[in-house]
Simulated assay, not measured.
Amino acid sequence: MNEIRSAPALDDAVLLVDGDIVSRHAIAGYLRHCGYRVVEAFDTNEAMKALGYPSLVIDVIVCDVGAGGDMSGFELACWVRRHRPGIEVRLAASPQGAARTAAGLCEVGPHLHRPYEPQSVADEIRSLRAARDRA
């Protein structure tokens, strides 16, 4: 794993949706170390449940395109864009997965390439916050 670049507590909340428990825990731990609040979801059903809690504010969703559940990660991203437009979404996909959904990715924004390093996820979230702060 890359050297951890420490950051001040950012207080942004990240919903991390990934069925791979090892990958999810590694990324969640790294993001927590960087100062983010992290909510973990195994699949899109758990993600939708988390999004339904009125007291839970989510700023960014990082979701595997192939996440299990009643909808795919791509469908979750589309739902969030329509119903919760204040939440930034970053999909994670293998190059093959990204190719299969390339047309739709334009609707939901940039994506992360799998396998990804925790540092790349933190860097992407940091850049989202910087863009939001500039706006």
Rank of each mutant, 00 (worst) to 15 (best):
M1C: 09
N2M: 12
N2V: 08
E3W: 10
R5N: 10
R5I: 11
A7H: 13
A7T: 14
P8I: 08
A9M: 12
L10W: 09
V14G: 03
L15A: 01
L16Y: 01
L16A: 01
V17L: 08
D18R: 04
G19C: 11
I21W: 02
S23C: 04
H25S: 06
I27K: 08
A28R: 05
Y30T: 03
R32H: 05
R32Q: 07
R32C: 05
C34F: 05
C34D: 00
G35F: 04
Y36H: 03
V38N: 06
V38A: 04
V38G: 03
V39R: 13
V39C: 14
V39A: 14
E40N: 08
A41V: 04
A41R: 11
F42Q: 13
D43T: 06
N45D: 12
N45H: 00
N45T: 04
N45M: 09
E46K: 10
E46G: 02
E46W: 01
M48W: 11
K49A: 15
K49S: 10
L51D: 10
G52E: 02
G52W: 05
Y53D: 15
Y53Q: 15
S55M: 12
S55Q: 15
L56W: 07
V57W: 08
V57S: 03
I58A: 06
D59I: 02
I61K: 00
V62A: 14
V62G: 08
V62T: 09
V62F: 10
D64T: 06
V65Q: 03
V65K: 02
G66E: 04
G66C: 09
G66P: 04
G66A: 10
G68S: 12
G69I: 02
G73H: 04
G73S: 07
F74T: 02
E75Q: 11
L76D: 07
A77I: 01
C78Q: 09
C78R: 11
W79R: 08
W79G: 03
W79N: 00
W79F: 08
R81E: 14
R81K: 15
R82Q: 08
H83T: 14
H83C: 06
R84N: 10
P85N: 03
G86Q: 11
I87L: 09
I87S: 01
I87D: 02
E88M: 11
E88C: 13
V89N: 03
V89D: 00
V89I: 06
R90L: 15
R90W: 03
L91G: 01
A92K: 07
A92I: 15
A93H: 05
A93W: 05
S94H: 00
Q96I: 14
A98W: 12
A98M: 13
A99H: 06
R100K: 15
R100E: 15
T101H: 10
A102R: 15
A103M: 15
G104L: 14
G104C: 08
E107C: 05
P110R: 10
P110D: 14
H111F: 13
H111I: 11
L112Y: 02
R114Y: 00
R114N: 00
R114C: 01
P115L: 01
P115F: 04
P118S: 07
Q119P: 05
Q119I: 06
S120P: 04
S120H: 02
A122E: 01
A122P: 05
D123P: 01
D123I: 04
D123C: 02
E124K: 12
R126A: 09
R129V: 13
R129S: 11
A130C: 01
R132W: 09
D133Q: 14
R134G: 13
